[in-house]
């Protein structure tokens, strides 16, 4: 049942990453001065690109319902704030989320394939992905880091391709968990493997281990997406997740995407921010820009 896997391009496209250059670029992206109207525009885009996430053992249908309400109307006092892109939950919460979001533009994303470790027999991972794909619009699968780190790259790709085949036309995001890969070269390699195996999105992290998403890692992945688009013509999306808590960080990612891939990537179809506490900080920044007064977290609902 091995699905067709594109062959890896020539090694030249996987050349080593220049650590100093990448970290310096990331530093510059993070320090751009985005103010006033441009900031309001960026904050609105950040909301539209957010995957509002709750991945806790303590998630209940009630909490998922709250999360969905927040996703549909992030700021109850300001209807100008658009809904987020998607709600991202565990498989057990997908039914509740789908019920709450039916008929809305907010999509349902579910993590699958033994999230967060991915240490599960492959048949079960594929079965899990196929099961949640009956309801969810988007599947966030975890890459098999065990296979990647032991050099079984073909197994990594084969598994991604099989999951892709099992979920049909659902959107597949592949979580690389960059904090476990060991370095920028491996991040670039893993990005390439995932894209070649059919990923619609590549995603930095599960959010369950440290370090999660960092801007330099994002730059490496974005450059891999750019090189892949140049060599194959296929546009792959990027999702940053884990540890993104402030509007300032989010704007740093928007700048990195814009300056590495261009503004065709600045849409929810090609760029996502996975986060839970980020949304409120964005809303607070928005309110600050509009009213001039610094805001209190007490005034914003918990999702």
């Amino acid at each position: 049942m091995a699905a067709a896997v594109e062959t890896l391009p020539a090694p030249a496209s996987l050349q080593s990453v220049d650590q100093v250059e990448v970290e310096d670029r990331a530093r510059l992206f993070a320090s751009r001065s985005i103010k006033r109207a441009a900031k309001l525009w960026a904050l609105e885009l950040a909301v539209r690109c957010t995957d509002l996430t709750s991945l806790e053992g303590a998630d209940t249908p009630g909490r998922t319902a709250t999360l969905c309400a927040k996703a549909l109307r992030p700021d109850p006092e300001d209807e100008a704030v658009p809904p987020v892109a998607a709600v991202c939950v565990y498989p057990a919460q997908v039914g509740e989320a789908a019920t709450r979001l039916r008929g809305s533009p907010v999509r349902v994303a579910a993590v699958a394939t033994g999230f967060p470790s991915g240490q599960m027999p492959r048949e079960l991972k594929i079965a899990e992905a196929a099961e949640v794909a009956r309801i969810a619009d988007e599947i966030d699968m975890v890459m098999d880091r065990g296979a990647f780190l032991s050099g079984r790259y073909d197994a990594v790709q084969e598994e991604i391709a099989q999951v892709k085949a099992a979920i049909g036309d659902r959107h597949l995001k592949v979580i690389l968990e960059t904090g476990e890969l060991g370095g920028y070269d491996q991040v670039r390699h893993a990005s390439w493997l995932a894209m070649a195996a059919g990923a619609d999105f590549i995603k930095t992290s599960t959010g369950k281990i440290q370090p999660a998403a960092t801007l330099p890692v994002a730059v490496v992945m974005l450059e891999a997406i750019r090189d892949y688009a140049w060599s194959t013509g296929r546009a792959v999306g990027f999702k940053a997740a884990g540890g993104i808590r402030t509007a300032r960080q989010a704007i740093g990612y928007l700048v990195a995407v814009n300056e590495t891939l261009g503004d065709e990537w600045l849409t929810p179809e090609r760029f996502r921010l996975g986060a839970s506490s980020l949304l409120n900080d964005v809303l607070m920044q928005r309110a600050k820009e509009r009213s001039g007064a610094y805001q209190s977290a007490d005034d914003f609902s918990q999702a």
């Binding site: 001039g292 007064a293 610094y294 805001q295 209190s296 007490d298 005034d299």
Partner: peptide, 8 residues
């Protein structure tokens, strides 16, 4: 003004 209007 900023101390006075800070909602926190």
């Amino acid at each position: 003004p900023h101390l006075g209007s800070h909602r926190d």
